[in-house]
Design a protein around this nucleic acid. Sequence first.
DNA 1: TTGTAGGCGTTATCAT
DNA 2: ATGATAACGCCTACAA
Lengths: 354, 354
Amino acid sequence: MPVVSEHTSGEEDGVGASDLVKARPTMLDVAQMAGVSLKTVSRVVNQEPRVNEETRKRVEAAIRSLGFRRNDIARSLRQGQTSLTVGLVIEDIANPFYAHLARGVEQIAQRHHHMLIISNSEENSQRERELVNAMLRRRVSGLLIVPAGRDHSYLQREVRLGTPVIFLDRPPVNLEVDTILLDSYGGAHTAIEHLLNQGHRRIGLICGDPSVHTGAGRVAGYRAALQEWGIPLEQSLICFGCDEPIKAEAAVRRLLALQDPPTALFADNNRICIAALRALRTSPRRPALIGFDDFELADMLPVPVTVIAHDPVAMGRKAAELLFARLAGDDRPPQHILMPTGLIARGSGEIPPT
Amino acid sequence: MPVVSEHTSGEEDGVGASDLVKARPTMLDVAQMAGVSLKTVSRVVNQEPRVNEETRKRVEAAIRSLGFRRNDIARSLRQGQTSLTVGLVIEDIANPFYAHLARGVEQIAQRHHHMLIISNSEENSQRERELVNAMLRRRVSGLLIVPAGRDHSYLQREVRLGTPVIFLDRPPVNLEVDTILLDSYGGAHTAIEHLLNQGHRRIGLICGDPSVHTGAGRVAGYRAALQEWGIPLEQSLICFGCDEPIKAEAAVRRLLALQDPPTALFADNNRICIAALRALRTSPRRPALIGFDDFELADMLPVPVTVIAHDPVAMGRKAAELLFARLAGDDRPPQHILMPTGLIARGSGEIPPT
DNA sequence: TTGTAGGCGTTATCAT
DNA sequence: ATGATAACGCCTACAA
């Protein structure tokens, strides 16, 4: 891996040769100053072995003196298809789940001397596609996508061309590539079973779009657990479309106002869970509550919140590791990885039915 | 699970053909297929005006058929110095403050058709410098930096070369560039004054490294407010070096164990504040508490937390807007912008002294 | 150990 | 309206 020496400073920092000021020095400039050929500069810059110690010193002096910095754009144009950059498309970096995901990705990217381009799709499939295309035009080495859209056939050609693409949190549609998902089904199943074990029989479900994969998996887990216990599904206890906090709050209030309200709630994700907590604050009732996704301060709330937890940093790391394995030649068939979840009992999920 | 047919291609899969499969089409390929010159393809791709409608259609068909995607690396090599990318160096994207900052930056970057490279310095000045250099080698259009290091003269030449550089949250050292800071002094002053107004006279301060600019400003605000009220500074009430949660927790416990413990605490930032809350949980005492930085769920805790709040998204936006103004030719002298802070009283800061 | 020639994929310039 | 040719800054291949 070629590394460039990057000592600056030591130079005249006053006004200096103001004509030279606006020109970014190239290897040619360095070569001329050092009295060698461009190729020799290239050798020094890329720490190639066969360079005379004398020459190297002279070139390095010129590099420092000019403040030369290798142009990685030109480098990657010549050298290969890649720009030592990976692209990450998420919904919103301000959501801690994605921020942690990004953290994990970047840890691995740094290790492989890659930088990370992050873009927010805002859950808009049109934007997702534009962002992906913009990244591909910039020739990212690979792509990590939390998809918003429902059709990813537009990536088929790119994948065939050899760009590693990995889907996170939600699977691709019309595309067969590596996919890393949370065990939504298992997590939801565990949560519901936990509530059933406490004696709850009427369990409300507040979730977002059930046609999104994560939503579907969690609904399926909810259903399966109830069915295993022989408890009939009650549609009035299931609230869909609660993606925005306001809708989730309203849903909770509606559930609690039912003639025969649920004694427990299961919240589909961190944002919905927090919205539910806000709704509960103004309610006389105190149903049990379990949320999918752990979140900061969950343990510090008046009733500490029981959650289905997982490790988004590990998920990001795993995805990035897989991506770099692909870049290194790993050509196994597309992998489907399920990240485990676990219940953390803190109190809110252990409230008995009333 | 939808499975996609994976025919490699309709071509003969001989040795020669498989080479074509791996080749990303260039403008030349498109030109040949459309029977025009490379330059005409370029005109179509870049939506230049003087192209015959007929020709344009033919070229567009070829583009679609080949799945051509302009190589922005080659483009920016030729066209100018920039890669339609801006770099953002922060401490840790998993910290909500930085995540929101990044969100604001990206909003503006998207508007200017730029992508965002984000990197975590982990509060390491060496890493900061490496990341900055890596970004400059990639010829980012501009740089947004939350600095970890204490010397930024290494950026002087780059700044003189015309790359806009903007410092966020902390000022540069040995470098004169645009800087956007929080009003640390004013925020801390407001917080302490608020506590003094409640009757508190012994106010503990838990902060990180006081030589970091934000820390220094907050300490100064603390000092000034006390001095204005004629209250002598007591060193035993001031805890430095509490960057890690464990240290902050220990500091709080130590303060509360004093013979004459403080009746109120001021926490330097969001992480310290949360650490303080954890320490207080196991303590019989209930001092008042105000934290710098708002954080999610602060209003939902058993004692809702009074904070000095500000708007990190707006800060990111402002920084990015300034950056693009610079790129557009704005050559005013380096700007120094102070983002306002405000106190949000929620309860913890209104506990009376005991 | 060092240098020369050519090309990566695009855009700019100048013809036609 | 279209095309030929020369850059952009670097690296690969191949001499010297």
